[in-house]
Amino acid sequence: MPTNLLLLPLLGGFWFVHFCYFFKFRAQRLDGYRLLLESAFFGLLLIIPARLITYFWPRFSGLGRGTEAEWVRFWQGPPLSGTATLSLLIGLIAPFLVNWLYAAYLRSSSPQEWGLDDEESGLWGAAVSFLWPAKEKALDFAIRNSGNQFFQLLHRAAVQKSRS
């Protein structure tokens, strides 16, 4: 894979770290170099499913062969460009999918604790309300593991207030 193509999985990794609640809050405390390294790590992880898809899809599907042929004709370029581009696409979509699945899991596992918030209206408001448990849980985890004692205290006070 040409070096400049590595930028795509790196961008996908950054997007993933920035938007996936599991990593978002911890990443906010990272300095530039650590954030770059973490993004590169997740970018490398994104390459794995991307490579599996670009390798196996054309071998088992006519649509895959057609897509591969069109891609080669369109790009006319470096090998593994499809893998790099697909890793970026996976990185763009995956954090929202993970957040949504985690929120759905929390809501189904303890519906009493995470009852639907009816105050928000509109599509965006409904999405924010639905994702709220996943965000709260992830922030809770991040503060407990990465926050200093003062932040942990403030967090505990805020959690007690929300429960009361």
Binding site: F25, Q28, R29, F151, L154, H155, A158
Partner: peptide, 17 residues
């Protein structure tokens, strides 16, 4: 008082309400 939300871990966030 009552804290209305958990603190954000952003280093630039220097206030609490």
């Amino acid at each position: 008082g009552h804290l209305t939300e958990s603190p954000n871990l952003k280093p630039e966030n220097q206030f609490v309400s």
